[in-house]
Design a protein around this nucleic acid. Sequence first.
DNA 1: AATCCGGGGTA
DNA 2: TACCCAGGATT
Length: 361
Amino acid sequence: MKHLEVSEFLQNFNKELFESNLIDWFQDQKRDLPWRMDQDPYKIWVSEIMLQQTQVETVIPYFERFINKFPTPQDLANADEQEVLKAWEGLGYYSRARNLQSAVKEVSEKYEGKVPKTPELLSELKGVGPYTLGAILSIAYDMPEPAVDGNVMRVMSRVLSIEDDIAKQKTRKIFEAVLREIISSKDPSSFNQGLMELGALICKPKNPNCSICPVQKHCRAYHAGKQTQLPIKSKAKKQKTHAYYAVVLMNKDGEVYIEKRPNEGLLANLWQFPMINKSEIDFDYLSAWLEQTYPITTFGCKKLSPVKHVFSHVIWELEVYQFVVDVKEVEGVVGRFVSEQDLTAYPFPVSHQKIISQLSF
DNA sequence: AATCCGGGGTA
DNA sequence: TACCCAGGATT
């Protein structure tokens, strides 16, 4: 029963009744979320970027602060990137923030701040992929575009008993084709949001609550008793561990040395304490390496608590040391010494926030 | 088609 | 632990 055509998935499927069952349930049961207060395309855009791979409850406080700080596209376009990253601090996938600001600048300049209304123009924007495109067009502009995310694939794989591997890129296209056939033309916004809301509240990955599901009678997986076996998803490979020394260099004034990470790759443009891979240096030479790399001479050294941090694709194990240092006057140094007070102005990854929380100034 | 890119919630 | 989350960009 694999790799069927769209028409085969939809045989004997009552799409009109499915549509009304889904939309009626959504209108009645939808959560009161801050990006549902109005239909401002900018706010919907911001929310959709934040919601990528991120749960609703996590996003809510970030969204509130972000919109309060950058109420309009112009505000975000004119902001300093460091300010934007600071507002994103702790949310993860920081390229979302940089791409969003870049795209908002483009909208501000080319379209007078109006979010474009066509798939072609929208998909040109950085950070707007197939899902976000459909979400913006359907929710902000009531256009019948599919918005296929993890929720939608889980719900529809069960409803239509679709057994393709949802971890594979091409499978999303199958769901988009199916959704184009059944999406409501009357209320595509409630239809798309209803599918996602259903996935979040009822048709959950584990223990789906089929007994109260508004589309139970349409669900082939439920009727076959195999709702917990769908969707099919191949496993991701395990992360590799990287071990580093991370060092806090504190001068006599209680200021600590921080440096900006490169403008691409992991945690791009965020700040950190100096780190060196343990495979590159033995601990006995750490002090000497620090003195040749940074404008300092080291004195005392004490060990802080180690930090373990799990990313989606890699694991960091940081062995943390704090050095007392004298500062030499050197030009061309990338980092800087900052006070405890000023530290709060810089965006740090959570792994290094764990180090900051150990410091006593 | 794989891999890179965060962090937190949940069973 | 392992899996998941209103995914997109890069290789």
